[in-house]
Amino acid sequence: MPRYVMVIDQSRCVACMACVVACKRENDVPAEHYRTRVVEMVRGEFPRLRSEMRSELCNHCDNPPCVNICPTGASHKQADGTVQINRRKCVGCKACITACPYDVRYINEEHGYADKCSFCQHRLKEGKEPACVATCIGRSRMFGDLDDPNSEVSQILRETSWRTLKPEVGTKPNVYYINQFPRKS
């Protein structure tokens, strides 16, 4: 069984929003709702500034608070490491939305179920990368199987220093961030 992870190279993100639109189209995400976002933070005073860019999405945590709180098992962890939602079982109690430290869930208002990034599960089944990864202009997003030592993501996580978001919450994310800033050569 693979163990899917995403690695995001922040230095290569150009905040172009291609991932955001690709995700919305691929997954038919309703208007004004998002499964992924792009964050741009600029610190300092003119002209000494530093900027950080990164895309964010469901971290498919190994210790997922959303799965723990879900009363019906609609939110569940799969053997491939992803956190998925069984829409049929969702009662729309929204506990998972409050449980997520990363604020990546929303309610599909038409149907009432909670929704979020699935790592494009349907594409993985077809052997395709998630839509955001496939279209990432800066090749900032990388995706692969951590159980395969030869995968690109395995190699990067082995050889580079990485971090995850909000490690203090103890969620053990499967989305890893590298190169917080571009190299100042």
Binding site: P2, L124, K125, G127, K128, E152
Partner: peptide, 21 residues
């Protein structure tokens, strides 16, 4: 060498899907 294609091949097989893409 590592490659994305290897990953995709593996992913497609292990997910039980047909190897189409």
């Amino acid at each position: 060498a590592f490659s994305r294609r290897n990953f995709l091949k593996y992913a497609a097989m292990s997910a039980g899907g047909t190897l189409i893409a």
